[in-house]
Design a protein around this nucleic acid. Structure first.
Lengths: 212, 212
DNA sequence: TTACATATGTTAGCACTCATTACATTCAAG
DNA sequence: CTTGAATGTAATGAGTGCTAACATATGTAA
């Protein structure tokens, strides 16, 4: 294992693979995904434009790894927010949801890459995996809250999906500059409001009584 | 005014501007936005690669018009769904929401283009405008339902935002292949469930009583 | 009808950038 | 001091956005 210090001076980079992912993450905060080339990533990492191909099959493979890293960070951000609130509380769900939305709003292009369309090469399995991990974090916290709120008999998937969709939607709308929302701060209140109303509504009128 | 038949044979196309938008919409169901060039659109419209520049300032201008057309169609789809249900009913809101999500799921790349990041050239005003129209359709139906359900005293923006975010989020998640959701049909039920619970919850515990 | 101005096409081409590959070079470890 | 993985060099070929110059159709006014 090479030590990760002074990676610039040496011919052998140490961990070019990670460095390229990092460099691409940096570029993503400056330009659109479609404008980021393998050559760009290599330049940002201070390496020749052919070097990345020793570590990634092609451009899509690199982007898949970047997306996976995005999910890891999203997971970290939400987990921290969840666990900063009392376990089992509705507040913890709200906090996690706000963190999710805030992450999307703060990293628009990365968020788009993570949830982008039709890149289903085999390489993208790695992104799917870390996405699933991220989902697991949400679900485990949600189950605890559902039990604490007397909703333990409901399916966590069915109960959680609208909440997940809501915070995901807010993120996507903020990225898309939906001007009606007025920015991230108002949205935090909307998330809290929406989540509380949803919990209250399910408690009052449990799903499973389809009307039509 | 030229007649719109047999546009192929004539030197003057008739309405190349519309034809190019249409052609690009067609391409969007086959490839990613980033892989669509002005030349592609021109080819698809059966015209030289320089012709589009008579009608659009540049590539982004063309894409802006395509996005605007997307909003027009989204608006039509949701309005029809809204109005196929009794006015003022919660079912009408659910139907409109399902149509929104279904539209996104059916046109992934178009949806991404419409809500894409950071293309804020002046040309994009046209897309914003038709986006706002689309929002107006939603809001007018929502207001009627809110009044019918005894929620007329709430702010439509604040009340509607979580619902909008939810259906938007479902669309985005379906596009991103969130496998946990199991496709469009299950999601329809989730939308109905979520919407009903949200209405019930607000009726029970009106927003405006912030807890923290 | 004729003549001209304007709108809408075409052809040709510039100046780039890109993804990817083949082959040479460097360096660290055994 | 050999070996082989990790990088660099150089090049290929394709495609891009966009412009300039030229061609044809259309509408309008004489």
């Amino acid at each position: 294992m090479a030590d990760t210090t002074d990676t610039r001076t040496r011919y052998h980079h140490g961990d070019l693979k990670a460095a390229l992912i990092e460099a691409t993450l940096g570029l993503l905060s400056q330009k659109r995904i479609e404008d980021i080339s393998v050559a760009d990533a290599a330049r940002a990492a201070g390496v020749s434009s052919a070097a990345p191909y020793r570590h990634f099959a092609d451009r899509d493979d690199l982007l898949a790894h970047v997306a996976a890293e995005g999910f890891i960070r999203l997971n970290a951000a939400t987990a921290e927010a969840f666990d900063a609130q009392p376990p089992g509380s509705i507040e913890s769900i709200i906090a996690g949801g706000c963190a999710y939305t805030a992450f999307g709003a703060a990293h628009p292009e990365l968020f788009h890459l993570m949830w982008g369309t039709t890149r289903d090469h085999a390489a993208y399995d790695i992104a799917r995996e870390s996405g699933a991990t991220c989902y697991g974090t949400f679900q485990s916290r949600l189950v605890r809250t559902m039990e604490a709120q007397g909703l333990g008999h409901h399916s966590p998937e069915a109960f959680g999906a609208p909440l997940w969709a809501m915070v995901h939607g807010f993120a996507s709308l903020l990225i898309g500059r939906a001007s009606q929302l007025g920015g991230l701060e108002p949205v935090r209140h909307l998330i809290a409001q929406g989540t509380r109303a949803y919990f209250a509504g399910v408690l009052r009128d449990p799903p499973g009584s389809p009307k039509a």
